[in-house]
Every structure is written in structure tokens, then in C-alpha cells.
Design a protein around this nucleic acid. Sequence first.
RNA 1: GCAGGGAUGGCGGAGCUUGGUCAAACGCGCUAGGUUCAGGGCCUAGUGUCUUAGGACUUCGAGAGUUCGAAUCUCUCUCCCUGCACCA
Length: 962
Amino acid sequence: MSIEYKLIEEKWRQKWDEAKVYEVEPNEKPAMLVTAAIPYLDMPLHIGHLRTYSTADALARYKRMRGFNVLFPMGFHATGTPVLAIAKRIKNNDVQLINILRNIHHIPDDDIKKMADPYYEVDYFIKVIRQGFIDTLYSIDWRREFVSIEPIFSKMIEWQFGLLKEKGYLVTGRHPVGWCTNENNPVGQHDTKGDTHVKIDELIGIKFKDTSSDAYFVCVTYRPETIYGVTNIFINKDVKYVLAKLNDNSNISNIYLTKEAFENLKYQLNIELIKEIDASELLSKEAINPITNETVPVIPGFFVKADTGSGIVMSVPSHAPFDYVALKRLENEGYKLPSFKYIKILEIEKSEEGKGIGRSIQDQKNVATNEDIPALTYLEIMGIDEKSSEDALELATKAVYSEEAHYGIIIIGEYKGKREPEVRELLKKDLLMSNKAISIYSIMNDGPVYCRCGTKVIIKVVDDQWFINYGDKKWKSKTKEVFNNTVKLYPEKYRHTYNSLLDWIDLRAAERSQGLGTKFPLNPNHVIESLSDSTIYPMLYTFIHILRAENVAPESLKPEFFNYVVYEKGDIEEVAKTSSMNLSTIKKCRESFDYWYKNTSRHSGSDLLANHLLMYLYNHVAIFPEAYMPKQIVANGLVYLEGVKMSKSLGNVDPVSDGIKKYHADPLRMVETTIADIDSNLEVKLDEVISGIYLRNEFLYNLINDLYKFNGKELTHIDYWLYSRLNSKIKAATEYMEKMNFKNAYSEIYFNSFNELNIYLERNGRNSIVIRDYIEAITLMIAPVMPSFAEELWQMLGHSSFVVKEKWPSFDESMINEKIDEAENIIIHTIDDINSIITLTSKIDANKNKKPSSIKIIIADDWKLKAYNKLIEVKNINEVVKELGLEGEKAKFLAQFMPKIKSLIKMHEIESAYMQSAFISAQDYLKSKFNVDIIIEMESTSKSARAQRALPNKPSIEVIWQ
RNA sequence: GCAGGGAUGGCGGAGCUUGGUCAAACGCGCUAGGUUCAGGGCCUAGUGUCUUAGGACUUCGAGAGUUCGAAUCUCUCUCCCUGCACCA
């Protein structure tokens, strides 16, 4: 009979709704607040997203069964730019986007059109996503729903930022951002064409003084340490240069750079154009190396790009392949060069095999002729010369750069003897401190990045930007302390990562010029950045439904109100007056917050580890009193389908609505929460796994229907075995659940159970009471993951209560019988052994065309196991012989274990009589399995020649052929 | 570059926290046999190498070490993945 999931889901969802099972208020039970990162409203969710929510829901349901009063609420996130970006793309008739919405998410064209209005978009997606959560049977208390752009939410954020300011955590500063000069806005990843991430790197521009004027050549480089090897300066002879006035921290100087560079850098430097200059004019000049004070000429370089850095580079032919080749080419063209001295600035540390330069280069083409010029050495061994392409040179440059950074030891100058990366930093600092260089930011992407409007993105340094200063020392150490002392982290193995992230996080933008959200109090033209405004909102769940029920106007929610709710600060009557609210409302809010917020579990995908979860923790430490610190954080891995990551942009998604139709809520929940470890990416062939779950569910369902066919006679060996398995299963599963290890928990609870039930039935287990006890416990334990199916089974088992409100089963330690389990293991091993013996002996000529007629299983005498264990203990045959009073033959038996005695371990003590009864109970089963007579004998009474071969816990087997 | 993580049989992926019962769960694939089985169904056995009785040998990225004993602990090396900020 196949199961009508859709009907079952619908039926129980309605019954739960009617009984308001998930609408909870403070009571005498211990509280637990389970929250998951609220979904972002720029797209409907796909089934991959459900993993986080399903895990949170399963925990919520489990904890309810463990006696907690659990609140699982949900809200929606709309602040920031993505919602706007979608609206804008729809407005611009973005075909790609519209196709996704239409074809994948089945949104009617009419609605798509209306989504050009971001608020329509928000409402629409809330509707879709909420329905998805309902269909997935989450135990959400919907009375507490909110969206992050509604006024009540904003009031909370304003209060939060007031506190952050008060505590001095808000600071202004300089910061480089990707910038669109057309729209005059910062560009984030989804503002760029192809959602390119703008990679920004800090470079250094070293100032070489022009000998013939007071101006400087600004040479931009990654490797200031190569300054010792500079032979000349390269410029591009085909582009326009300018002279500009630079005001660098009121240190005024004139600099040369390309016109294009000027246009870019005016957004990050304080510079003014003085005049344009021809490249040819610069080519007649010389400049002074600020470190070595040597005078070097200005020379044309073919590779110098006008729009990169300043359009001027310093030439280090000894270590830079491009520089070396440029000089070589000039020479070949007949350009008259001075005789440069190529100075080697570092030595490559030798590898164990004694290899120096080129040690990390895999397939070396040639042998180097000259190791005094490293750039040349690399070119030679890589088979590259001045005629090679720029790509080849780029490759060589990378090879040099990485090897020298890895193994380079500086052999010149002030920092002689130190490693290259260290010297780079030291020199950078020196040069900047002494005004011999300026810092310049550059886009590190391969090729230019474009804004969606088509303009090339440049770097702007904003200097009135507000940041949240997560670098604050006290705040940082307090946060780490809370994290390490009070927060349970799942998976625990992220703790190390997390600690280093807590250290790493520093300034973080608090506001931005665009996007939906709460106005930034310190600059009302800006809104609060949307990661910063989603850190403490779980508090809102605890009382927002009270505010709504009492029709409290958002304007009433003054800081005094929040201060009272969170700190119980101030006089409640005063607070009621200032916020024009009922005293009782405020009191209720306070009580509710205090009740729920002491025990929280926070859930999100592991991709939010480095941002949301960090800020969640920091902000909790900043805002809340000790008692309300986070207690638990759960980060789950992502979902892959058929080996491909589910991603909105890839379009390989099943929207939630489709997924539920196709797979049904309960089986899908089962897969998402229990197939993979919580920390690993879930990588499944959904159809395959789901059909496995269908089969198992049907097995359970049918077994309950067939319960009447069984009887309730006296308990036999196999009944005790099933009870033993059940109780140890409950014990193990409960331990796993407590550790948030759903995977292992459910392979015990669910997947292993079918094997056990099958063994039980095959072994002629027929006790309806035993089966019922077993299935009831399974039903209870699958309820957190497959709630409606469990509910259906629970009803079939004759209960009238909701299974989701039942207690998690407890186990009876006395029913766990290791001996019986061990005996079963021995039987299973014996079956394996019989199989391999039959396989092997069937090849014997004498057995050709024959079949086994019977199999003898001969159980070892008790003394063998005793002696064996004793031998392991004392490791001395004589002692065992003496102590147990064994004769010659028996001592000989023990001798076989001596060669490996040190590596053998003790065995479980099972008496031969017990073993015999176990085998007798399995006799029919073995008989039908091998389709032959099974004879069970004891070693002492057996006449078989193989009898004495019986080993402790390993019966001797004799296969008798016809 | 900085930080974090990883490397296991044809594949995916357990086990490694607490070293032994690990030739290594589970699933997929593959092979053989069965099934009144018509087309990705079910059952049984096999699937590192060798083996005429349940055994032996070699394996868990490479190398070295600790130990009676290592996939599991230590060290070195190689390779791979992820994140790096104003962006949800």
C-alpha cells in the first residue's frame, strides 16, 4: 500500500493548527528559543535552503519532546541592496532574471511586472516563502512574524545603534570601496556585471625624486623590498602623463603619473592636476632611489599599463621577468642602455635535496646558465625568453613571486638575513612613515570590473564612513570569553576557526548610501548596513506579538521601552508614560523576553560563519546582560545535488514549492537533516535517497497494519535480543541528539531499525507486543524529523494524543544485554564463515556438481574461552596451565595464540550453554538460509573430526557434502 | 599573501575526539546466481592480492617516528578546497 503523504501532511497540519500546538507562551517548563537566520527576500527559497530550517525545526521538536517549552519563530529579511537590485533589474526588463522567475519559480508575468516596486516584491516573496515553510511542516509560531523593514524593527535597530554609539563602538575612518563614478555609489558584488566580487589590494607607491625638478615619480609595486635592485624607471611612451599636486596628510609634493591613473586615483588621493606632460619629456629624466640614493634613468617599457597603479613602475631586472625582458627587447631594438648592474637581493633557501632557485617549478624545460640574475634563471628553466608572449611572462612572474615569498632570504640592506615577506612589510612601513611612499589601492581582479550601468569600477577611499569597531580590544576579549565559556558550538570543530575569525574581524561598515533599511542615526542620508541590522533581532520574537495584540504604535517604542525590556532599567511607570504604553504591556514584554532569551539556539548555514554569526555574537555581547548571552550556535553545511552546489545563479534549483510536490515534506526533511553530517555538505542523489525512504516508511506502515497477525506469547531469545537492541538504540540515539548529531542519531533510530526488524522477522520473531513496543519508540523518535508521518503511525498504533507533544522515549538499562548482542554477532560471523567455506570448498574437484547436505556447528568447550582470556592477561602458558589445571593437549591448544599474544585482546565471556541456546533459536533461520540441515553440537560431545578446532567465540564448522 | 579545512577501495562517503573487534560502515557501481522478472524491481553471494575449509599478505596522499599494535597519535613534505569585509 502506498502512503498518501499529501493527505497525511495536510490532515495533521490542520489538526496542529486547530490545537495551536506551536503557539507558545512562558510557562513553568524550561524555555528554549530556537531561531534560524531569516530568509532574504530577493528570491523564493529552493530546497537547498531548507536544510538550516529543517535542522532548527527538528531540534525544536526534539527539545519539546524532552520537556522544554520551545519557541520556534520566523521573520523575513529585506534590508540592503539585493531587493532593490531585483526590482531595478525587473524595471530594466532583465530577460535572464525574468526567465528565472517565470520558469523556475512559476511567478505569473503580472506579478513579475509589479515587482519593479521593491515593496511589492517584498510582500510577494514573503507570501511565497511563508507558504513554503508552512508546507514543510515547520513548528513555527506565526504570531511573531516580522520583516526587517517594518517600523517596529527599525525602532529596535535605532535603540541598538544608540547603545553602540554610547559604548564607543561606532567610529569613522578611511576605507577603500569599489565605486561607480557614473552612479556615484559604492558597488558591491551584486551591483557588478556578472556578480563579480571586487577584490581590493593595498599597494605601495614609492616616490623617486626627479633630479631636474621638485617632482616625484610614483612607482607602484607589490614588492618594495626589491628597491635595492632598481636599475631604472619604466614609463609607457605612448600615453599621456600629468604633473599633479599631492597633499598627503598635509605633506605636499608634486608627482608624475599617467592621465588615466590620475583620473582613477583622484578618488583615493588628495591630488590636483597641474599640467599635462608628454611621455617623451619624462624619458629624458633621471630619478633618485629613495633607499639607495642611486640615480636611475627613465626608460620606455612595453608592458607598462596606463590605467594600472600610477602608470610608472620601478625596474628590477634582476628579480622581475617583465623588467628583464623589457630591457632585453630595448637592447635588441638598438636602444642604447647604460650598463646596468643587476643586483641580487635575495637567496632562495635550499630544499632538502639541495635545490635552490627553481625548486618549486614542476616541469623544468632547460638548465639555467646564470644564477646571479634570478629573473633570467627562471626564464631559462621555464623555457621563456624575450620573444615569448606576455602570458608566459606573467606565468614566470608568478613563479618568481611565489617562490621568493616562500623561500626567499634577503641578502642586502638593513634587513639582511630576514625572510622576504617580513622585509616587505618592514620596508613598506618604513617608506610610508618617512613619506617616501604613499599607499595606493588597486583592483585585483583579472581584467576590469564593470558596474551594472556599464561604467568601469574604480576604487574610492571614503573618509567619512562609519564603522562598527569590532577591533575594540575589550569588546573582542569579552566576546571571545563568552564564546568559549558559554556558547555550545555545533559542529564543535569550527571552534578553532571561529576563534581566529573573532580575532580577525576589525572595522566593519555600519552604514551605506543605498538600500532598504533603517536610517542611520548619525547620518540620516544613509541606511544601516544590512548585516549590521540583523544581529539581535531574535529578541523581537519574544514580545512583538504582544505589541501587535495591543496595537502599540511603533513611535511608542522609545529607547526607554527597550531598556526596560532588556535591562529592567528605569521606573516602569515612567517608561509607560514616555512611551505612552500600558504598564501591563511593558511588563508582559519584559517577562516574555526574560523567559525566552536565556536559552537560545541560533542556526544558519556555514557560509554565514564569517559574517552574520560573528556579528551576532559581538552584538549580543555589546547589548545584552550576561544572562542573555547566546547559548548555542549551529552551522550546517550546504546542499549539493548530484554533485553540483545548489545555487540561485546556477538555476539548478528546485524551488520549495516544487520540491514538496515532488518529494513530500517528511521525506525531504529526513534527507536534509539526517543524511549528511551537519558540518559536511549534503551531497545526494535525491530521487534515489527519497525512494529508499518511501520504501522504509511503507515497511513500517504495513507492519503496523499487520500487527494483528502476530501474537503475544512468552518471550524468546530473539525477543530479548530486539528489546536489547531497542534500548541501546534509544540510549545511543539520545546521546547523539543531545550532541546535535542527527546523522548518527537517525541511522540508529531509522535506518538501522529496518535491518533489525528484518532480522527479527527472519529469525521467526512473532511477538506482537515486542514489535509494538519497538515501533512505538521508533515512531516517537522519528517525530522531530517526519512529524506528520509519525503522527499518522501514532494514530494507527491506537493513540489519540499528538505524537509531537509526547515524551521522547526513555531506555531501560537492564534490558540492554551485551551477552545477547555478542551472541548474535557470533551467529552473524558464523554465517559469513559458512559462506566463505562453501565458496572455497565448492571449487574442490570432489565436490563438483554436489551440494552441501548438512552443516555442523560445533561450539567450543568453556575452558577454551577462560584459558584464552587468562592467557591474554598473564601472557604465559605455564601460568595458565597451572592455574586452570589444564593437561597436555589443552596446553598445546593455547600455544597457537602465543606468536601474536601481544596484539590479541580479551573476548566477551559467553558460556557454551548460552551459545548453544542462541544457535538453537537461530537453527530454523540457518536452515532456511542455507537450505540444508543444521546440526548444533558441543565440542565435548561431538564426534566430528573438526570438533577440537572450535575456538573461543568461534564455533567450528563442518560442511558435509552429498 | 593571510587565515581555516581537507587528502580513505571504481565513485560518494563513514571511521579518525577515546590507537586494537578495520580489508575498512552505509549507499552507488560492477560480477555471478536466483526470482512465472518484459524492459534502472526483488533476493542471495561476491567485488585489494593470493588461497583445494573459515587463512595469509598488502593497503587508508608521500616519507619518517611513537607503540606489542596506527586510517586513527607526533614530525616533515606534496597536493586540493574555502573565506578575506561594506556583501547578503
